[in-house]
Computed example of a mutant assay.
Amino acid sequence: MNLTDLGYTDQIEATRKELQLEQFGIGRIVAEHKERYIVRTADGEYEAEITGNMRFTAQGREDFPAVGDWVALTPYDADFAIIHQILPRSSVLKRQAVSHSGEVQIIAANIDYAFLVQAVDRDFNLNRLERYLTICYSSNVSPIIVLTKTDLIDEQRITEIQDSITHRIKEVPVLAISNETHDGYEALNNVIEKGKTYCLLGSSGVGKSTLLNNLSGQNRMKTDVISESTHKGRHVTSHRELTILENGGILIDNPGMREVGIADTASGLETTFDEIISLAQQCRFKDCTHTTEAGCAILEAVEKGEIDEQAYENYMKMEREKSHFESTVAERRKRDKQFGKFLKNYKKKDIKNREK
């Protein structure tokens, strides 16, 4: 295997030279296990750790490697290496960290396309699709909607679901497939390009692992059945892992996500809800909250049926989440700055006392 098979390009090589990293080896993170990384290089795979300096200077989760990252490393024996630096990312998929207010969780890095996977029998949810779209657009990742388990419903219902998507979501490809019969797989394979990186986003039990197994031609990921009592999927995939497919495409699987928290997604919201954002410019008041104001162009469009009411409600909910996340981040930075100032003054006072 060479680096090109992993998605390495002339642009990445040019960046490596610009950063003067020629003395290091280059590899791509293919799996992560609690800050221990599996890095694939042209010479093979290494288990790797970051340097102490990288850990010490990291200001947040985004400063640590993630699956999909290109890294500069030094091998120390046949299967162990030290990571010295992360090469600049072309994209980074992220969401608000679960149970950690104001913090970001990295989903994957250097992604070209994201498959937004939903099962048509139970999981289908337009609001959740818009959340995934917002994450993609804010990360410079192109979305492709994939509807799975089409063998469980009839053609009429499939058409209804596809129509409901195109009514609210514009210019995003929609593919309908069955992991059991492989219907739709030809169209799916046709959109996967050699050397491009794709990732799977979706809830547990929608068929992501089975899809990966079928596309790779290997039984790489464990699969499980939907619980008959709860109608929910189990978290079979427990970590992110990069796989090279039979046709040369590169696919990253992800654990199922029950929560898709919005974080730092202003540009993503503008693209996902571009029709609503455009109407906002026509509101009577510049500081319109689009809730109760007279002369609100968005509310008028909702009343006339020109804007889907559920799309409007979903937009407002995500806008509130974004604002809350931004205010929480600002508060954290303020506290960190105050604490840093306190430490600085404490050290100065300590030095003066010692001099006396």
Rank of each mutant, 00 (worst) to 15 (best):
M257F: 07
R122P: 08
P88C: 10
N214L: 15
R122Q: 13
A58H: 05
E293L: 04
R320C: 01
C283V: 03
I29F: 03
Q282L: 13
V30T: 05
D336F: 12
E18S: 15
N190M: 09
R320Q: 12
I144A: 04
V104L: 06
T292A: 14
Q310Y: 11
D77W: 04
N110K: 01
T265I: 12
T150I: 15
Q310R: 12
T197S: 10
G233D: 06
I277E: 11
Y312F: 15
A263Q: 05
K208D: 05
R240S: 12
T181E: 10
T41F: 01
T74E: 07
G44W: 02
N219E: 12
K196F: 09
Q218C: 06
R240T: 11
K349L: 11
S204H: 05
G295D: 10
V172M: 07
T237W: 03
T166R: 14
K334G: 10
G195C: 07
R168N: 15
G217M: 04
S278C: 00
N247L: 05
H167R: 14
I82Q: 15
I226W: 02
D287E: 12
E180Y: 15
A187L: 06
E22L: 10
E180A: 13
R16P: 07
K196N: 06
K304P: 04
V172N: 04
H324K: 11
I250P: 04
G27N: 00
G184M: 05
Q310N: 07
E313C: 06
Q59V: 10
T237M: 05
R240E: 06
E313R: 14
A294L: 08
D154T: 05
H324M: 07
K94D: 03
G268Q: 02
A187W: 07
E171D: 15
I29R: 02
N125T: 06
D336M: 14
L299S: 08
D183E: 14
I307F: 06
L3V: 00
F115C: 09
L19C: 09
I250F: 09
L200Q: 02
L269Y: 02
E193H: 09
N127H: 12
S164R: 08
E270Y: 08
I277P: 04
E228C: 05
I244G: 00
F339H: 13
F24W: 08
G340Q: 15
H231D: 10
L6S: 03
K352Y: 08
I83H: 00
T230F: 08
K341A: 13
T210F: 09
Q23W: 11
L3S: 03
A48R: 00
G248R: 02
Q85M: 11
L212G: 03
I307N: 00
L21A: 07
G184R: 04
